[in-house]
Amino acid sequence: MPELHLVTEDLAAYWTGRPASTIRRWGIEGRVTRHEDHSQRRNGIRYDIWELPAAKRDDNGNVIERGPAPPIASTPAAQAA
């Protein structure tokens, strides 16, 4: 099994070039896996960076193209929502 590389919501947002609210929504919709970090008192949710689509950036770090949205999981729970 591949090793997880868990990052905070803010780092996930930077990686994808999208707002943090989009990362939260993707987690709720089942597009990406939410990992709970019980060692954190506040916002203990982490995301595996390898699950997230990377944004394309220029040499200065500016977003050229945001990472594409992952597909919605096709589980019965996701379909019922």
Results as ranks from 00 to 15, higher is better:
29 E>T: 10
78 A>R: 08
16 T>N: 09
78 A>G: 06
69 A>K: 12
15 W>T: 04
78 A>T: 08
26 W>H: 04
61 G>Y: 06
15 W>K: 12
33 T>D: 14
78 A>I: 09
69 A>T: 12
24 R>I: 14
63 V>S: 02
51 E>M: 09
52 L>K: 03
78 A>K: 01
25 R>G: 04
67 G>D: 01
72 I>F: 03
8 T>M: 12
63 V>F: 06
63 V>R: 02
39 S>C: 10
11 L>C: 07
53 P>Q: 08
15 W>P: 01
69 A>Q: 07
7 V>C: 07
54 A>Y: 03
1 M>T: 15
6 L>F: 05
44 G>I: 02
80 A>E: 15
79 Q>G: 13
64 I>A: 04
69 A>L: 02
52 L>H: 08
29 E>C: 09
19 P>Q: 06
20 A>E: 04
2 P>H: 15
73 A>N: 11
19 P>K: 02
18 R>H: 00
51 E>P: 01
78 A>N: 07
45 I>M: 11
58 D>M: 08
64 I>D: 10
6 L>T: 02
34 R>P: 07
64 I>R: 02
68 P>S: 11
36 E>I: 13
34 R>G: 09
2 P>N: 14
4 L>E: 11
9 E>A: 15
7 V>F: 03
15 W>S: 05
79 Q>W: 09
12 A>K: 01
14 Y>D: 10
42 R>Y: 14
71 P>Q: 06
59 D>N: 11
56 K>L: 09
37 D>W: 10
30 G>C: 08
55 A>M: 01
80 A>M: 13
74 S>K: 15
54 A>V: 03
64 I>C: 00
76 P>E: 12
44 G>R: 09
26 W>I: 05
75 T>R: 02
49 I>A: 05
47 Y>D: 02
65 E>Y: 09
1 M>K: 06
20 A>C: 06
30 G>K: 05
24 R>L: 13
31 R>P: 06
74 S>F: 11
33 T>S: 14
